[in-house]
Design a protein around this nucleic acid. Structure first.
Lengths: 236, 236
DNA sequence: ACCTTACGTCAACACCATTGACGTGTAAAC
DNA sequence: GTTTACACGTCAATGGTGTTGACGTAAGGT
């Protein structure tokens, strides 16, 4: 088939499908996200997406090289949505914090899609913009480049990793999620102080804390550590 | 089929397969892990696992309710292996560090199972032991319970989240993984300094750093921050 | 030696991603 | 205004996947 996909820029002949939809990369991405939001991640297949679009499944291959390319497009769309309306304040800690929490929150609002895309490198528009911004925050905070790069890497991966972890828990089939949650009371709440003294001593606090995401606190610890390592010359 | 699976305890009639293997839950788990380790994530399918065992694929359903149950069994096996031979040194930082790195490394060695198991709460033996140990490290380091619990949560979730993130990248089909890696050179290396000044300035460092996991550095930052928040009374 | 039944096997089902061939309608060329 | 080229939606087929019900055989208890 040599090359089936035409880049979105040069599309002219928009022929409607039998059922009347006019396809586009954008429409496909939006429909896919909607499909996932409504019926869960496992509902995303080429066949079902084709049906939801009112088109033959194989028509998608005119827009995306394969399903993986489609996933990357979904991932990038979500990064874009996370950054929508974000503004730098000039306070590096505050800017990193808000960026991290936004990414986390946005992925959690589409748990099923987050699971699919959080760990991909897309190289697409929204992603490069996010990278540029975060690097910019760190470099203009006065961190030397070598440190800024390592800090960028740790920060971004932490945000995406927690987002994926928390999203995955949310995206679990209802039965499995409830079973996992019940384990805290049915197993950890009943461990003997003889065999598990630390769990027994901390259990009430533990059960309460595990209900929420560990990300905000982990993020705060990371920012603390970065602040402590910031060159004295850069301090305000 | 009512109930096809017999719990491992009550198995008596071990009939060899046509090709002579004698199946067991343990053998299946081991073979699956070996399959994944040797031939990559894609090699793990019921059919291929059956072939590797010298048995009809459907025989597996006599041992596991479905593939999800099989993968959970793999994950449980891995938690055990991660802690095998671990010993506390009494230095809380060193103990947390070694525990975190072990979990991370162990999950990475079986990415396919890690992706599915990292965000589940099993409440099984190996898991409760790990929780007890980590809480113990923090409490006997002198952190008050309320802080120890939050720190435990952040620590564990960060280890699992990074493990899942890095494992997911490894578990990608070969083509997709290579494409993601190539993006760093083909996209980020070619961004103009006009539109993306920070990326352009930091690119060589960035490309080098992104090749490895961000976890070790993120872990170190977390330990730094915890050390700074440790009550003065507890300091040696 | 007889029963019971566990468990390995077989065949079938429903789904999946992907591809090559085909023809039609569109937009550009003249 | 007609013609022409080809983009793109459609169809059919391929080889993969997990899962299940029916079946017979050999193992274990008696």
């Amino acid at each position: 088939m040599s090359e089936r996909v035409i880049p979105e820029g040069g599309r002219k002949r928009r022929r409607p499908t039998k059922q009347g939809s006019v396809l586009s990369e954008q429409l496909i991405v939006e429909t896919a996200l909607r499909l996932v939001a409504q019926h869960g991640a496992e509902a995303l297949s080429v066949r079902r997406l084709g049906a939801a679009l009112g088109a033959d499944p194989s028509a998608l291959y005119r827009y995306f090289h394969n399903t993986d390319a489609l996933l990357l497009a979904l991932a990038d769309e979500m990064i874009g949505r996370a950054q929508e309306g974000w503004r730098a304040t000039g306070d590096w800690r505050e800017d990193l914090r808000s960026m991290g929490l936004r990414i986390h929150a946005c992925y959690l609002s589409h748990p099923q899609a987050a699971v699919l895309g959080a760990y991909r490198t897309t190289g697409r528009l929204h992603e490069t913009r996010a990278v540029e911004r975060i690097l910019g925050i760190l470099r203009s905070a006065g961190f030397p480049d070598a440190f800024a790069v390592r800090a960028y890497h740790a920060f971004v991966d932490q945000a995406l990793a927690f987002a994926a972890l928390d999203a995955a828990a949310l995206a679990l089939p209802k039965a499995a999620r409830e079973a996992d949650e019940a384990v805290w009371n049915s197993v950890y709440g009943r461990l003997s102080a003889d065999t598990h003294p630390n769990i027994a001593a901390a259990f009430p606090l533990l059960a309460a804390d595990m209900r929420d995401s560990g990300y905000p606190f982990a993020l705060e610890l990371m920012l603390d550590a970065m602040a402590a390592l910031r060159p004295a010359a850069a301090e305000a």
